[in-house]
Amino acid sequence: MPSASDKAWPDVVLETLKANDVRLAVYVPDKILIPLIDGVRADPFFTALCATREEEAVGICAGAWMGGMRSVLMMQTSGFGNIPNALASLAVAYQIPIVLLISERGALGEFNAGQVWSSRVVAPVCTALGIPHHAIERLDDVAFILDRSIKQAVATQSPAALVLSPLLTGGKVFAG
């Protein structure tokens, strides 16, 4: 497992994805995810793909898995609100391990009321669907939680959801 010691969280994420042979990175853009999006786009190891909507991304990741390619789906908490049906009727019903990396808006200093309530659906929806979910709050935990979650998802054929907390990323602050 990669060591987290002197690296920034995005570097640890990218390293851990590579160590687990996660080659397809599908994303819907988000500001906190910029270093991850730039990272997968710059590295030929990854096939980076910008989807128009999170549901679509679930379909792409599901197809890739069934074709033998591991993937990660990166989105914002508001985007998670677009995908419960795709998770329930595709990823969960068909036992497809899709790893969701979710940038957390709506908490710890959120300035946009439109983000607050949508972010609160993530944990209850995951719980309702039986999808393991964790918040990643500390740099030292990034490699362990992501590495183990990918391995468990693959071994148990289940999606997994990881929320990147502002405690880890700094979050997005009001720019005026």
Binding site: L24, A51, M66, M69, A88, S89
Partner: peptide
């Protein structure tokens, strides 16, 4: 069986993987 509208995205994922 569900996920209405995702036939083409699923097919795209398979096409990328294979």
């Amino acid at each position: 069986l569900g996920s209405m509208g995702l036939a083409f995205p699923i097919a795209l994922g398979v096409a990328l993987a294979q």
